[in-house]
Amino acid sequence: MPARHGAVGIGLVLVLVSACGATPPAGTQPATPATGTSADTFAAVEAALAEANQLEAQVRTAQVQLAVRCMTRQGFTVHPARPPVTTRADALAPPLLSPGLPDARTRGYGIGETVASAEPSPPADGFSRLARADQERYEQAWSRTADGAPWRDGPDGRPLPAGCLGEAYAVLHGAARHGPRNPVTELSPAAQDAYHEHPRLTAALTAWSSCVEQHGQPRFTDPAQAYRYAEHFHYPAGDSAEDPVPAGGPWPFAQARPREIALATADAECADRSGLRQVQPQVWREAVASAYVQLEPQFVAYRDALTRALGNARTALVEA
Score class of each variant (00 low, 15 high):
P2R: 06
G9C: 08
I10L: 08
I10T: 15
L12D: 10
V13C: 02
L14P: 01
S18G: 00
C20G: 15
G21H: 06
G27Y: 13
G27M: 15
A39Q: 06
A39F: 12
D40T: 06
F42G: 05
V45E: 01
A47N: 08
R60K: 11
L66F: 09
C70L: 02
T77P: 12
V85H: 07
R88V: 07
R88N: 04
A91S: 13
A91D: 03
P99V: 04
G100E: 11
G112A: 02
G112H: 00
V115A: 01
E119H: 08
P122K: 07
A124D: 02
A133T: 13
D134W: 00
D134K: 04
W142F: 09
T145M: 10
R152M: 06
D153T: 13
G157R: 07
V171N: 10
L172K: 00
H173A: 00
H173S: 06
G174H: 11
A175K: 13
R177Y: 08
P183W: 13
P183S: 05
V184P: 04
L187Q: 03
S188N: 05
S188F: 14
E197V: 07
P199S: 06
L201Y: 02
A204W: 01
H215Q: 12
Q217H: 03
R219K: 11
A224G: 12
Q225F: 07
Y229W: 10
D239H: 06
A241S: 10
A247E: 12
F253E: 14
T265A: 04
D267L: 07
A268S: 08
V279W: 05
Q280V: 14
A289Q: 09
A289D: 04
Q294S: 15
P297I: 01
V300I: 15
A301N: 08
N312H: 07
